[in-house]
Nucleic acid binder design. Structure first.
Length: 497
RNA sequence: GAGGGAUUAGCUCAGUCGGUAGAGCAUCUGCCUUUUAAGCAGAGGGUCGUGGGUUCGAGCCCCACAUCCCUCACCA
């Protein structure tokens, strides 16, 4: 519109029109490259005819000589452009029409500057894409958390730390996948849209299928489908399963999260603890290069063996309460009060004995667990899909891996007895009918499947997002996914053309 | 869901007692052939989150709302 209030964006749009009028395509369709940027840094001095492409993140113009840096996801390299090398016309074009944020393709040879930086001496260049908005500041980067979540692309461009975090997440998933495949596990996919949510205690998202006129649920866990596949004859299966839970937001909870689950026929939970130690240490060694991480000022050592303790022992050590001696709900509550365990924000009236044990553990014990610990032998009430222990049927053959007060892994010997399973799910359904909406829904189809015969199985689940947060010293789990769910902003201001 | 905090230029941030809206980077103009937060000289850029209120006068005080962050509760 008027000339005296032009934004940078207006000026860039004008520039694009001028470029087109002068026969320059501001958005060519391709660029031939000989190397990625991190590869180019490995090239010897004087390597010639090198063709690279990337986004310009810095320009330093000094008359007839300019330096610049281009960047891609894995690296950046300095460019040196001079009027002598490019000719006056091309050099002037660079100075006048190339900006920070643009993509360019360059050709030239490798040399080392006076300050010792490997640099491409550019003999030819081509504008690959003209940016019309400017990038965030080069020094402070983008620090506004909301902007990082909503505009992750900017976060990735300007914040090295963010790129590293997502790299670790990718590596973690890749190395785990390789390890499982190397140990005879098969990757499978099971439904996300389910007519009945099962496999965990959580509130689902509900949606609707139009032509079946059927309410369906986004899965809260892949568990019962993966076990159906074991019945189908597979011995070891795993899935990186996106799960959805319609629950509160926090620094430790996403609405949509990635859970790895695997199931191994003929293993019990003790076999599985051994495997867990081997797999996670192998993966950490490959991803991080060592077994020690720093998290919020604590140093955590994943060296094996990790201690194995029953929930009873952990509660006994943490509180002095022996849950084996206090099997009565009210008596347990009284002991907790005697030990002045603060359960004031817990709705104790709604809890049975098992849930009360869990509440005491979470309040008084779990926050103090730093290093990796196998927590075993949870009460049966807390584990409707886990196998009861042969010696003590009141507890289950179950374990969790607890690190820094976080449950990273949950696993158990699976319940494979269809009669027992039917009874337990009927009990859950009764709790549910009585108003406990965290109890599990009865699943006849799953029981029916079990009745065809299920081998001994140990199953295992781990939250990839939380593990990523732990390994990257990240406090907010939102930063472990590219685009966390956010409330939409009121419609972004529209610009006239 | 409860409590606390933040919101000022594209980005990072100042803004005193209520009295004309500030800096650095980025942008534009000029100079500059080894810089790397390049430098030097000059210039442009603001609905102070939104809507009310108090006041002669509000970025600042009051109320409501919006978004985000933190803590707590449920859940991995």
């Amino acid at each position: 519109m008027t000339d005296n209030k032009k934004t940078v964006r207006d000026e860039r749009i004008d520039m694009i029109r001028n470029l087109r009028e002068n026969g320059v395509n501001p958005f060519p369709d391709r660029c031939e490259c000989t190397h990625r940027l991190h590869e180019a840094l490995e090239l010897p001095e004087n390597a010639d005819n090198i063709r690279l492409a990337g986004r310009i993140i810095a320009i330093r113009k000094m008359g007839k000589l300019s330096f610049s840096h281009i960047q891609d996801a894995d690296g950046k390299i300095q460019l040196c452009l001079t009027q002598d090398d490019l000719g006056k016309e091309n050099y002037t074009f660079f100075k006048k029409s190339i900006d920070i944020g643009d993509f360019i393709g360059v050709k030239g040879s490798i040399f080392v500057t006076k300050t010792g930086e490997k640099t491409l001496r550019v003999t030819e260049f081509q504008l690959l894409s003209k940016a019309i908005l400017t990038l965030p500041e080069k020094w402070h980067g983008l620090s506004d958390l909301e902007a990082c979540y909503r505009q992750r692309y900017l976060d990735l461009i300007v914040n090295e730390e963010s790129r590293r975090r997502f790299q670790i997440r990718r590596d973690l998933i890749r190395k785990i996948r390789h390890y499982l495949e190397d140990h005879d596990f098969m990757e499978v996919e099971t439904p996300i849209l389910q007519s009945k949510p099962s496999g965990a205690l959580a509130k689902p998202f509900i949606t609707h299928h139009n032509s079946l006129d059927l309410d369906v649920y986004m899965r809260i866990a892949p568990e019962t489908y993966l076990k159906r596949l074991i019945v189908g004859g597979y011995t070891r299966v795993f899935e990186f399963a996106h799960c959805f839970r319609n629950e509160g937001i926090s620094t430790a909870h996403l609405q949509e999260f990635l859970m790895l689950e695997y199931y191994a026929a003929f293993w019990n939970y003790e076999d599985n603890m051994d495997f867990t130690e081997r797999m996670l240490t192998a993966v950490l060694q490959k991803v991080l290069g060592n077994l020690t991480i720093e998290y919020k000022g604590n140093s955590i050592d994943f060296s094996t063996p990790w201690p194995r303790k029953s929930l009873r022992d952990v509660v006994l050590e943490g509180t002095g309460i022996d849950i084996n001696q206090v099997k009565e709900r009210d008596a347990l509550l009284k002991q907790a009060e005697d030990k002045s365990i603060d359960l004031s924000d817990v709705n104790v009236d709604a809890l049975g004995w098992g849930s009360l044990v869990d509440a005491i553990y979470k309040k008084a014990c779990r926050p103090n667990i730093l290093s990796p610990l196998f927590l075993t032998s949870h009460p049966k009430e807390l584990s409707p899909l886990a196998r009861a222990n042969d010696e003590d049927p009141s507890i289950t053959d179950r374990f969790q891996v607890v690190v820094m007060g976080m449950e990273i892994v949950n696993a158990y010997s699976e319940l494979v007895d269809p009669i027992d399973q039917r009874e337990r799910l009927q009990k859950q359904q009764q709790l549910r009918d009585a108003g406990d909406d965290e109890a599990m829904e009865f699943d006849e189809d799953y029981i029916h499947c079990m009745e065809y015969g299920m081998p001994p199985i140990s199953g295992w689940g781990m939250g990839i997002d939380r593990l990523t947060a732990l390994l990257t010293n990240e406090e907010n789990i939102k930063n472990t996914v590219y685009f966390p769910l956010m409330r939409p902003l009121e419609s972004r201001k529209k610009f006239e053309e």
